[in-house]
């Protein structure tokens, strides 16, 4: 489904702030793979997601999604294939627009925006149905500005918007990090069920090792712009937090500092 071949990205090249964010990274996802991504700060997790989403072009390498080479496509053109939920709950929704208007924007993801009326009656029924599945009571508030919702509600709505039109790839960028523990658990549970129901290919970054182990069928660990650990299937299912830390120490060796970050 997703084939990332030998991509690299350096920020601020030639300056004192030069930073090699991704360094010859290879990654291949099968259809329906749910991959959790862990790693210390600056390991390149978000850069990997941004490279795939097309926030900026990569310096070298290629990215293929659903059989299409998307390396040269800007973010808004890749959007037809990719659904995204950001870390910041404010980032995924338009606060000045109604809930149903936000959903209508998501409903036309990757399509030409025509002069047709945006929210049709049958669309509204669909939105109501899908919102009720969130279990947050939003189905009765279709014409409420999204800016009035809480962070958790907005993140749940963003998740729904990202998956309303089934994407080829779902990118979750620490999407529960800014939420309180109870809300975070709820949003994670929603993510699980929506991924499972639609058999979505998913990349999920998390700082929480327990979540990384519990969710998905495959786990990758990143360091210094590479993937240093890739565990899937049976092996992942029996993984413990302790083993993960040991594996990390084994691969990364001397980098105790990053260990501490991972533990947090």
């Amino acid at each position: 489904m997703l084939k990332v071949r030998n991509i690299s990205k350096t920020f601020n090249p030639g300056t004192i702030n030069e930073k090699k964010a991704i360094d010859g990274l290879n990654l291949s996802l099968k259809e329906g793979d749910f991959v959790t991504v862990i790693g210390g700060n600056g390991a390149g997790k978000s850069s990997l997601l941004n490279a795939v989403a097309g926030v900026w072009p990569v310096d070298s390498g290629s990215i293929e999604l659903a059989g299409e080479d998307i390396t040269g496509l800007p973010e808004y053109k890749r959007a037809k294939l990719i659904g995204r939920v950001f870390q910041d709950p404010m980032m995924g929704t338009a606060p000045d627009m109604w809930i149903e208007e936000n959903l209508a924007i998501a409903m036309r993801r990757g399509e030409k925006r025509t002069l047709k009326w945006m929210v049709t009656k049958q669309d509204r029924e669909l939105y109501r149905e899908r919102l009720s599945e969130l279990g947050l009571g939003l189905e009765d508030r279709l014409q409420v500005k999204v800016g009035l919702l809480s962070g958790g509600q907005r993140q749940a709505l963003t998740l729904l918007m990202a998956t309303l039109k089934s994407p080829k790839l779902l990118l979750l960028d620490e999407h529960t990090a800014a939420l309180d523990p109870a809300t975070a658990a709820k949003v994670l549970e929603l993510s699980d069920s929506v991924v499972e129901r639609n058999n979505l290919t998913t990349l999920m970054i998390t700082h929480n090792m327990t979540d990384a182990i519990r969710h998905g069928n495959r786990l990758i660990m990143m360091n210094a712009g590479h993937i240093i650990l890739d565990i899937e299937g049976e092996e992942k299912r029996h993984l413990t937090k302790k083993e993960l830390l040991d594996k990390f120490a084994e691969v990364a060796g001397h980098q105790e500092e990053t260990d501490a970050v991972l533990l947090s």
């Binding site: 808004y76 053109k77 959007a79 950001f86 980032m91 606060p95 000045d96 208007e101 209508a104 924007i105």
Partner: peptide, 18 residues
């Protein structure tokens, strides 16, 4: 609506293919 979304939240608009 795509214009409105752009003014309200450009990052969201871009992620939604606008």
């Amino acid at each position: 609506s795509a214009i409105r979304a752009t003014g309200s939240n450009a990052a969201m608009a871009s992620a939604q293919g606008i």
